[in-house]
Amino acid sequence: MDFTERLNALALKVQNQKHAIKTEEATKTAFIMPFISSVLGYDVFDPMEVVPEFTADVGTKRGEKIDYAILRDGEVQLLIECKLSSLKIEHASQLYRYFSVTNARIAVLTNGEAYHFYTDLDAPNRMDSRPFLVLDLADLDESLVPELRKLTKEDFDLDSIVSAAEELKYVGAIKRAIAEEFKAPSPEWVKYFTSKVYDGSFTQRVREQFYPLVQKALKQFLSDQVNDRLKTALGAGAYGEAQAAAPETVTSAPASEADLNRDTEIETTLEELEGYQIVKAIACSEVKPQRIAHRDAKSYFAILLDDNNRKPIARLHFNGKSQKYIGLFDADKNETRHPISALDDIYSFASIIRDRVRAYEA
């Protein structure tokens, strides 16, 4: 697997296993050591590369330990402090103390799912209070992948990442601030947008009236932008495929070629594409992600290996008004529908999805 695939595979592992992690040590073993070894490429069992429980004496305090130090040519380059996976990353005070007594230019605070990267932009040899890069495995930002690659053993480029850190720091912070505004507009945003469309005084009553309107407009704007991108990606048209809506029985007939070649009025939804991305993330542990394709139909959304309708991996039955189903296939290509209440439920069928892909490969 290449770098991005390894990162996606770890992200999938974290989502599948984080509910079972109850201690900080389990977080290190299950998530953080694989991040250091599989993603960054350092040998966690080689003390010349990775030192666990690294001693960092701070002032009068002796024997202070930091969870991991990553070395290159005998010099400490990265410090990693770990938290329990269920804890939110908030304070880096302990890491801040360690930073000034080592040669490291990069410090990382992580709970195994979110990774906050710090350096010393504001004052030499003093760790900044804000991270310059925030990597969230639950919601990977592809624009950060090239920067993260610069910290790998193979492509380590400290000068490049530090020189880019200031822009990363503020662009990332602005993006997160915008995301918060889209979720819950601040009074300043409500007032700003209201002033663009309303000529009266901005009273408390007007604020209360326009708050839900601004919030709704922001969400619709974001949805419209996403839909425009999806239409472009889909070639501004729907894939030909249809089948009369099947009764909601437990087992349905095998996939047929005719199912996937009928011209109908089909609308691909964002939810279907999000479900496809989850199935794709699961399947890419077995094959290259570009081999996982999709075709939409009137009654279901098909996910295929090699865009071959004789190699169905799953079907998403999301067109019903209430219950949603994921359809999975046995060795004879008989489909069994499983009810799901949320997209994340798809992860619970990861082993079945992988088995089906492996069977086609065999």
Rank of each mutant, 00 (worst) to 15 (best):
L79W: 08
I80A: 11
E81Q: 06
E81T: 03
K83C: 01
L84V: 06
L84W: 13
L84F: 14
S85H: 15
S86L: 11
S86V: 13
S86G: 02
L87K: 14
L87T: 11
K88H: 15
K88S: 12
I89H: 05
I89P: 02
E90N: 15
E90S: 15
H91W: 14
A92Y: 07
S93M: 09
Q94R: 12
Q94S: 05
L95D: 08
L95K: 12
Y96G: 03
Y96R: 14
Y96A: 04
R97L: 10
R97F: 13
F99Y: 15
V101R: 10
V101Q: 03
V101H: 13
N103I: 01
N103V: 01
A104I: 00
R105P: 03
R105W: 10
I106A: 05
I106E: 05
I106L: 05
A107S: 08
A107N: 02
T110H: 09
T110C: 04
T110Q: 07
T110W: 13
N111Q: 05
G112H: 10
E113Q: 15
A114C: 15
Y115R: 04
Y115I: 01
H116W: 14
H116T: 01
H116S: 12
F117S: 07
L121C: 06
D122H: 14
D122L: 05
D122Y: 11
D122V: 14
A123V: 10
A123L: 09
A123I: 14
A123T: 14
P124H: 09
P124M: 00
P124Y: 11
N125Q: 13
N125L: 05
R126C: 02
R126Y: 14
M127G: 03
M127D: 00
S129E: 15
S129Y: 13
R130G: 10
R130T: 15
R130L: 14
F132G: 00
F132S: 02
L133T: 00
L135C: 04
L137N: 06
L137H: 08
L137Y: 11
A138G: 15
D139H: 11
L140D: 09
E142G: 10
E142D: 12
E142I: 10
S143F: 09
L144K: 09
L144E: 07
L144N: 11
V145T: 05
P146R: 02
P146S: 07
P146T: 04
E147Y: 13
E147V: 10
L148Q: 03
L148N: 02
L148G: 05
R149T: 01
K150G: 04
K150C: 09
L151D: 09
L151S: 03
T152W: 10
T152P: 06
K153L: 09
E154V: 08
D155M: 06
F156P: 00
F156M: 01
F156N: 02
F156E: 01
D157Q: 12
L158K: 09
L158I: 15
L158H: 05
L158W: 09
L158Y: 10
L158Q: 12
D159V: 08
S160Y: 04
I161L: 00
I161G: 03
S163H: 14
A164M: 05
A164P: 01
A165C: 03
E166A: 12
E167L: 07
L168F: 05
K169M: 11
K169V: 04
K169N: 07
Y170M: 00
Y170Q: 05
G172Y: 08
A173M: 09
K175H: 13
R176Y: 08
R176C: 02
R176Q: 11
A177N: 09
A177Y: 13
A177T: 14
A179N: 15
A179M: 02
